[in-house]
């Protein structure tokens, strides 16, 4: 027999290293020979799209198309430290560092252009499309190329640094402001349980993700699909099968991650509510997109079958056993002698 059920999961996630630990991102900009601007930043592209999204932030501030920007993020001998590509922190932290560096760089260009154009003040000077010009007398203008020809490759440069604001928590009470910003989401899942085999089939998914602002909506969607798939594997399939410290499922024929046939189209909803301290309001979402999915699946399984699975993963065996005994599977007594001290 097939039984259907629906479930919801909602979550919040605090970005960054947190707990008052200095969460620093640095970025450096340099004007290069061809008039292109190099953004030097230690933000790793792990597939999430950091290069593209961070480049977009830089391009927006510099009023340039991305083709006129270089992104140097691979070689420690070239770029400053921007922290790890983790904790969903690159868009927020390094995005901010790039924003600050770009603004400093613009100031620098304007300062130099004032001299070059023989002006009394920087007032009215604009930076756009590879040029610096006086907005009310357009004949006063100088291009990036002209500047670099005069000053030399890579000599006009500026830096930016961003440190996220968090407060270390009290060791006894845990009071403090450990992370910032927080990101929110909600996921709804409808599924079907085969009561004979204990197999679960996802039928319908709606997934809303707070993004602050989406720097690149398509990249966000890609993260949401990927996060859903990873959580699906977490909830239903993946098991290292640990026996006395040994990973028995140490290959892909045993450690089962979802295939294209196990995945489903996800109705993805991006919620934009810009975060004031973030670059253009953008928050990191790489991790959050995984978080509400598994609990939504578990709640839907309960809705369908009337049994609670308290232990992951929900293998067909575990689910079938729970349905047979009408007992919540995995509800063990936690006798913690160690904790009573």
């Amino acid at each position: 027999m097939k039984k259907r059920g629906k479930g919801i999961g909602i979550s919040f996630y605090g970005t960054g290293y947190g707990n008052g630990f200095p969460d620093v991102s640095k970025a450096k900009l340099r004007l290069h020979d061809n008039g292109k601007i190099g953004i030097y930043v230690g933000a790793t592209e792990v597939g999430q799209g950091a290069k593209t999204a961070l480049l977009q932030i830089g391009a927006e501030i510099l009023n340039l198309s991305t083709e006129n920007l270089l992104f140097i993020s691979e070689d420690t001998s070239l770029m400053p430290d921007s922290g790890t590509a983790a904790a969903s922190r690159q868009t927020y932290n390094t995005g901010n560092a790039i924003k600050i560096a770009c603004e400093n760089f613009k100031d620098k260009l304007i300062e130099i252009s004032k001299e070059e154009l023989g002006l009394n003040s920087t007032h009215g000077l604009m930076v756009e499309k590879g040029e610096i010009y006086l907005e009310f007398f357009l004949q006063k203008r100088i291009s990036f190329k002209e500047l670099v020809n005069k000053y030399g490759d890579g000599t006009i440069e500026a830096e930016g640094e961003f440190i996220a604001q968090t407060v270390e928590m009290d060791p006894e009470t845990g009071q403090g402001a450990p992370y910032w910003p927080y990101t929110f989401n909600a996921c709804g899942v409808e599924l079907e349980v085969d009561t004979l085999t204990g197999r679960v089939e996802i039928l319908n998914v709606r997934f809303a993700q707070d993004v602050g602002r989406a720097v690149n909506p398509r990249l966000v969607e890609g993260q949401m699909d990927g996060g859903f798939a990873m959580a699906l594997g977490y909830a239903l399939f993946e098991d290292l099968n640990l026996v006395k410290g040994q990973i028995k499922s140490n290959k892909f024929s045993r450690y089962l991650i979802p295939t294209a046939m196990d995945m489903i189209d996800v109705e993805k909803i991006l919620i934009e509510d810009p975060e004031p301290t973030a670059p253009y309001g953008a928050k990191g979402i790489g991790e959050p997109v995984m978080i509400p999915v598994a609990p939504a699946i578990l709640n839907a399984i309960y809705d369908a079958t009337g049994v609670r699975i308290l232990e992951l993963p929900v293998t067909p065996e575990r689910l079938r056993k729970a349905m047979d005994t009408k007992k919540n599977e995995g509800n063990f007594n936690m006798e913690l002698n160690a904790l009573k001290r």
Binding site: G222, D225, G226, I257, T259, A260, M261, M263, D265
Partner: peptide
């Protein structure tokens, strides 16, 4: 169809995309 596409790529694992954009 989308289902046939899913079957056609079912021998290729992807950990990042959740396959949907590939379909």
């Amino acid at each position: 169809t989308r289902e046939e596409i899913r079957e056609g790529i079912s021998g290729n694992l992807c950990r990042c995309t959740g396959y949907n954009k590939i379909v």
